[in-house]
């Protein structure tokens, strides 16, 4: 059981991260986010250039900002799920270890008693 629990925890870890990586989370861009990013980018761009260049700059800036925001959100998400996994795994391992030690002591006591008899 205890060996099995260790294996379960390891498989859980592998599967958890496997699923996490495989589950493609699309970049959800809201209209508000685009507007904010575009206006920010325009405000920061002082260059007097043609429309195509401005569009490229704005797009670059907007995509960069959106990606940074998604990275930040994913950091929060991964931290939360990692903590959940860690708490349950540590508690399960603690229980397994405790039960294992108690079983060993009980066996020891039984064998001592038999020897005395």
């Amino acid at each position: 059981m205890h060996k099995g629990l260790w294996i379960t925890v390891l498989i859980a870890f592998a599967l958890f991260f496997g699923l996490f990586i495989l589950s493609q989370i699309p970049v959800a861009i809201t209209q508000d986010e685009v507007s904010i990013a575009v206006s920010d980018a325009i405000a920061e761009t002082n260059a007097q250039v043609d429309e195509i260049e401005i569009e490229q700059l704005v797009t670059q800036k907007a995509v960069g900002k959106l990606e940074a925001r998604q990275k930040k959100r994913l950091k929060f998400l991964v931290s939360a799920y990692f903590i959940i996994w860690l708490i349950f795994s540590l508690y399960a391992l603690h229980l397994a270890k405790m039960q294992n030690q108690l079983c060993k002591r009980l066996e020891q006591l039984h064998s001592d008693l038999q020897q005395k008899r």
């Binding site: 996490f20 989370i25 959800a28 998604q70 959100r73 994913l74 998400l77 799920y81």
Partner: peptide, 16 residues
């Protein structure tokens, strides 16, 4: 992660 739709205010963080 694969079935539940993404909430539009909190986005991915809502999955907590």
């Amino acid at each position: 992660f694969s079935f539940a739709e993404i909430e539009m205010t909190m986005l991915e963080v809502q999955k907590i």
